[in-house]
């Protein structure tokens, strides 16, 4: 019968684990009962409920991070079968088995699949990825944004600082201080905003210092990897244009 065949089906996982930030990584194999439409998160939940390895010995539950389970929060980024992506949208039916899961090593590993994406939030602070509107009185409504501009700017606003683009980038590593694609695209977003534009030069200048936009080597893995389909390389090239113009403007007006 089809039902018994389905009930017996299992999914194999090879998971790279690490007990603490300083510990050496190791792999463990798991065999999880198959359920229709399962994703990597539901498989990890199954391992959490029953932390037994494929060889039958007990182990500690695998630790991971996840929140929204609908690919908008960016928390469950991990390397699945060699590619960095969101675990919640990684459907088992579409993955080659055994499924190999590892943390995104570009970031400091906290434990197992949990990484520390602090550098991404620091990068957003560094480029001032916000719009300053605070004042002592009501400033009234800001200037309007053209609908055509709003449409492409909205695509950039989908960034969830998941870190996949940094993991894919060959120039984001411990030998380079490159800020990574995400923050550069956010500069384009906030510089496109009619009120944010008033502080455009501050964001450009932040990218014109060590570890700024010059770190991009145009491998373009970021745009291929972004789970939200953000045109990261277009953003980088557009900001290349803006920083180049800003450089000449500064040279000839100072």
């Amino acid at each position: 019968m089809a039902e018994t065949a389905t009930a017996k089906r299992t999914v194999k996982f090879i998971i790279t684990r690490q007990d603490n930030p300083e510990a050496a990584p190791y792999t463990e194999e798991f065999e999880v009962p198959y359920r229709p439409n399962m994703n990597v998160i539901s498989a990890l939940m199954e391992i959490q409920r029953n932390p037994v390895k494929a060889d039958g010995t007990k182990t500690t539950p695998v630790v991971w991070e996840s929140n929204c389970l609908e690919e908008v929060c960016g928390a469950c980024s991990m390397v699945i079968n060699g590619k960095p992506r969101q675990a919640c949208s990684a459907l088992i039916d579409k993955l080659e088995q055994p499924v190999r899961i590892a943390p995104m090593k570009t970031f400091p590993v906290v434990r197992d699949l949990v990484i520390n994406r602090e550098r991404m939030f620091q990068a957003l602070k560094r480029v001032k990825a916000w719009i300053p509107i605070d004042g002592t009185y009501d400033l009234g409504p800001g200037p309007r944004m053209a609908e055509t501009k709003r449409q492409w700017a909205y695509e950039l606003s989908k960034c969830m600082t998941c870190g996949v683009c940094l993991e894919a980038c060959p120039n984001v590593n411990d030998r380079s201080s490159f800020i990574g694609p995400a923050a550069i695209s956010q500069v384009r977003l906030f510089n496109a905003h009619p009120t944010g534009e008033m502080n455009a030069h501050e964001r450009l200048e932040a990218l014109m210092t060590d570890g700024g936009i010059e770190g991009c080597g145009n491998s373009q893995n970021c745009v291929r990897s972004c789970p939200k389909g953000i045109p990261l390389t277009t953003s980088i090239a557009a900001i290349n244009k803006d920083t180049t113009k800003h450089m000449f403007k500064k040279w000839f007006t100072m």
Binding site: A168, N171, N173, N218, S219, Q220, N221, R224
Partner: peptide
């Protein structure tokens, strides 16, 4: 730079 053409075999990454 890291070379990660083993993981990402896109033309542009090879060019990189």
């Amino acid at each position: 730079s890291n070379l990660n053409t083993g993981r990402f075999q896109y033309g542009r990454n090879w060019a990189f």
